[in-house]
């Protein structure tokens, strides 16, 4: 079968991406926080490129919008880590989640998803990188505001003041494990807030 050179190149770079990301993600699943950080940094750069490219095709060029969808996608990736099948490519997994969130975002914001030429090719992920983070609009901050006081303060300390989980936990008078669980619940509540708001609008 003849493959056009351009597509072949994209397939190759998707494979490179997979080779780079897969060991990181498998280590992350086993509990390696540093590997998880590297994975999230690498995948968010790719996803930002993918999402802004697809949004631009739908006539949306505001960078803050792509950043919103990116944040929602990252949150979904995080909360769905247990759905990854180790026998399948991690790029395909991440792409499918990003695509779901993108279609949902477009449907929610009034544009019929059918108008967007969404192709199923995960190799879009191997397209242009975009490392310049734009300011998101207020979506995630609003979700953060909706959290219970205690959880919000914990997240604020870790996120803004750069405290370690252990320090933040001591300050809040809880164990480190309890703090991790609380942060995880907070992230879950933020994701639920985002999808609930979507249903209302």
């Amino acid at each position: 079968m003849q493959i056009p050179p351009c597509e072949q190149a994209q397939d190759v770079s998707l494979q490179e991406l997979e080779t780079q990301l897969r060991p990181l993600f498998l280590a992350a699943l086993a509990g390696d926080a540093a590997a998880y950080r590297l994975f999230l940094d690498a995948i968010s750069v790719r996803l930002r490129g993918y999402l802004s490219q697809m949004l631009a095709r739908a006539g949306r060029t505001e960078v803050s919008e792509a950043e919103d969808v990116l944040q929602e996608t990252l949150l979904a990736l995080h909360l769905s880590r247990h759905t990854y099948d180790a026998a399948s490519p991690v790029t395909a997994w991440a792409h499918a989640i990003a695509r779901y969130k993108l279609v949902d975002h477009l449907r929610r914001s009034g544009r019929h998803a059918g108008a967007l030429p969404l192709d199923d090719e995960a190799h879009r992920l191997a397209g242009p990188e975009e490392s310049a983070a734009a300011d998101a609009r207020f979506d995630l901050s609003r979700a953060l505001d909706a959290l219970p006081e205690r959880t919000r303060r914990l997240i604020d300390q870790v996120k803004l003041q750069g405290a370690s989980v252990a320090d933040a936990a001591t300050a809040a008078g809880m164990t480190e494990t309890a703090a991790k669980v609380a942060i995880h619940r907070g992230l879950r509540a933020m994701a639920q807030f985002l999808s609930k708001r979507r249903r209302q609008s």
């Binding site: 699943l29 998880y36 950080r37 990252l74 949150l75 880590r81 942060i183």
Partner: peptide, 23 residues
Amino acid sequence: MQTDDLISLMSMDDRPVDTGWLR
């Protein structure tokens, strides 16, 4: 909230994830 903050927050979770649970 910046995307980078979100990533820091998420990568603090070093509890292992069980991918076989669903099956």
